[in-house]
Computed example of a mutant assay.
Amino acid sequence: MPRPAASRRRTVARVAGALFAFATAVVLGQLGVSAATSGTASLLIGPLDERSLMSLAMLIAFLSLGIGLWSVDAPRWMLALKIIGIVLAACATALAAVVITLVGDAKATPLLQGDCDTGYVVVEHQSLRGSSGTVYRQDGLIATSVARTSGDDAYEPFAMGGYAVTEAGDTLSVSYAINRPNAGSNPLGTYAGAFSVPVLEGRTPQCGLDAHREPLPSPAPATTPEPAPVTAASVDDETTELVSASLDAASGTAVDASGAPIDTAALPIRSVACAEGPGTRRELRLDFRTDDNTRSVADILKIWDRAGYEKDRAMQEDIRYSEGRPVERMSVRDTSSTDGLVHLTVSSACIVE
């Protein structure tokens, strides 16, 4: 007749084995979905997206492995290997727990237009200094990433309702707050975060859902029925505002190549011919240096990201662009290793007057 202690150890081993098998199935399922969709889709279970699922599954797997090794009787000659396996599993469990802490608390929020769902869900991860979010198109447990969001000072705009959705044709335009309402102005004045996603056809939305909305700090609609004509004067004003906000975000005082402080109001903006057709575009080129060029470039790019510009990158050059704004393209290149300078270029859309 088996001893009660031995029976309990076998029960613990079976439970640990079942948990290990479950965690392995989750990891294999996630890897399978990613491989089948070339990395464009992943599993989404409640608020657990790819990062959270993989971290949690690894934690469960290593923890159950360690418990399983401890609960299994081993002959004397394998005792050293058993102890080594338990120690390694404990270390891996601790590492997985640290990763889960770094991933942060995740919240999943259905993206609502009014009180109706749109078929999209936003998963936000909070950190000490801010938050990051991923917008998914969800089909059951499979979710496809379509956009990314961010917030400052641990603010989660979608979980806290600080967003608005408007529909124009077959496009949903989403504006969202970067900071908590009334917590301070955006460095670019009227700009908030924004992205667009297509309207999902062939589905019946669920309506009557609870949709708490905090006031946006700057309720600027993503589209306007009659946009103001683009003029050289309006483009110059916006260019000056962008460059001023960018240099304000830099580390220390920005100076030009000769070491003189930069007066953004006096920067020369020139007209160049549009390569794609008639008209001219306004362009500003600025070479400067700061107390820390690398950090300044990173902070400047954050300013441009918060303004809602799309990301791109060329050889040793970070680019932000927009297809519908007067300031169409901005780029920054750090050549500190050669001349100690940062080279910034701002170009407008083509102006036909």
Rank of each mutant, 00 (worst) to 15 (best):
Y176I: 06
V230H: 12
V199T: 07
L216G: 11
A192E: 13
E156Y: 00
A154M: 01
N179G: 13
T144E: 11
T171G: 02
G202K: 10
T223H: 10
P219T: 00
V243P: 06
D248T: 12
T224F: 07
A177D: 15
A194C: 01
N179Y: 09
T166N: 02
G193W: 07
L172V: 09
D210F: 07
P219R: 00
A220H: 00
N182P: 10
E201Q: 15
R180V: 10
P225Q: 13
P187I: 07
P157A: 07
P181T: 08
S234R: 13
T239K: 03
A222T: 02
P157H: 03
L172P: 07
P229H: 07
G202T: 11
G151W: 05
V243Q: 05
A245W: 03
N179C: 10
G208Y: 02
V197M: 05
N179A: 13
T223A: 13
E238I: 10
A164K: 05
V235G: 04
D210K: 06
T224D: 12
A245F: 11
A194Y: 06
N179M: 13
A143T: 04
Y191P: 00
Y176W: 10
S145P: 05
A154S: 08
P198A: 02
G151P: 06
T149S: 15
R148N: 15
T144W: 04
S150H: 14
E214A: 06
L200H: 01
V243I: 07
P157M: 03
E238D: 15
H212Q: 14
E241C: 08
T190Q: 13
A164C: 00
S244K: 10
R203C: 09
